[in-house]
Design a protein around this nucleic acid. Structure first.
Lengths: 191, 191
DNA sequence: TTCTCATGTCAACAGCCGTAGAGTTCTGGC
DNA sequence: GCCAGAACTCTACGGCTGTTGACATGAGAA
């Protein structure tokens, strides 16, 4: 029993294991015990560091990136450019496991856990809600976000074919004109 | 103990309670005991009727409608008409609680439970996979499905604003041209 | 009427779960 | 060197889970 010699990095190991498991199984399917096992650590230590499972969840969701911020930034400018920038930014985030994991974690949990759904809602609301500095009409933004969300869910979460196995290039080629269409339409109706 | 007089309809009550709970909480959050309680029935009776929780889940997901079939049918014909038909068909299904419940059940569970995700995948594959009689190119179909999925998730599952509270008319008005665009684009690249 | 079977109840099982708390060992500051 | 506290392990609690099996009762066919 007792402490092991050297700096262990157990806290970090726990966090990473938790992130992975919340991402792949959602909130309820992830167990303090299973996280501890994956981190090769005693379950009590998880409690020691994070007090409760909810707190562990919140800690695991500390996103390494600001997704809505990046997307909003990418949305600026002339429709054709903005569309291409938006799509490539979006997929860059989802194709990188490090940035994608917390996103799938958040989404999977939001789909089943009310607390997580509220977090996601408030999170997005805080970003999109202050409509003063939105680069596009609110309807355009939310429509685009929903489109992108659908693609991500289909490709990365539920893995529906053929979207799941489609080459990234091809998918981007299909989506960019679509995004451009929505952007241009929003601009037209706003003016 | 023992049987109550009269025809009880317990089996149906259990099924309805299960459908409701799988829809609102997903697979893991739904309990045989909680279903039994909602149906005002002994937990053992649930097992008696459905053997296992998995079987109950499958039974609860017997969809009252053929969603992919209806969508594919709506997709036929000239782009402008097809788009409008597609959007209105889709929302008619989602706005009706009776038809929406199994869908959210399936989706919520597919987001967290691998078995459910496989079911959903095979289900869609069986419908879309036989590409012989697809009304549109496969890429178009799957792209449209993903778009629609994203809208439904945003509006009915995670309830992201402003899509969640938007008037149905307005949302349809935003989406129809978009769907038309995708349809027309698919036709153009196919010819 | 009698017999069978579907319907229904109850108690118990083994196994998880989140969390608490006491106890042990090591580290870092003095 | 000492000592407070951080890191860590272990055991245990109450409560929940899916599933089992023995049992009771009423409906419907023979």
């Amino acid at each position: 029993m007792g402490r092991r010699p050297g700096s262990s990095g157990s806290r970090l190991a726990i966090l990473e294991a938790a992130r992975r498991q919340f991402a792949s199984g959602g909130f309820t399917a992830t167990t303090i015990r299973s996280v501890a096992a994956a981190a090769e650590v005693d379950p009590g230590l998880v409690v020691h560091f994070f007090r409760t499972k909810d707190a562990l969840f919140v800690a695991a969701l500390e996103l390494p990136i600001d997704l809505p911020g990046e997307l909003l930034a990418a949305m600026r400018g002339e429709p054709a450019e903005a569309a291409e920038r938006l799509i490539s930014t979006y997929f860059a985030i989802w194709e990188n496991p490090a940035t994608a994991a917390p996103l799938t974690a958040m989404f999977r949990s939001a789909a089943t856990n009310d607390q997580a759904a509220n977090m996601l809602r408030e999170f997005l609301l805080a970003r999109i809600g202050k409509s003063a500095d939105l680069p596009r009409p609110a309807a355009t933004v939310s429509l685009l976000f929903a489109q992108l969300l659908g693609i991500a869910v289909a490709r990365y979460i539920v893995r529906i074919e053929p979207i799941a196995s489609m080459e990234l290039d091809q998918l981007a080629r299909e989506l960019t004109p679509l995004a451009e269409f929505v952007l241009a339409r929003g601009d037209a109706s706003a003016s």
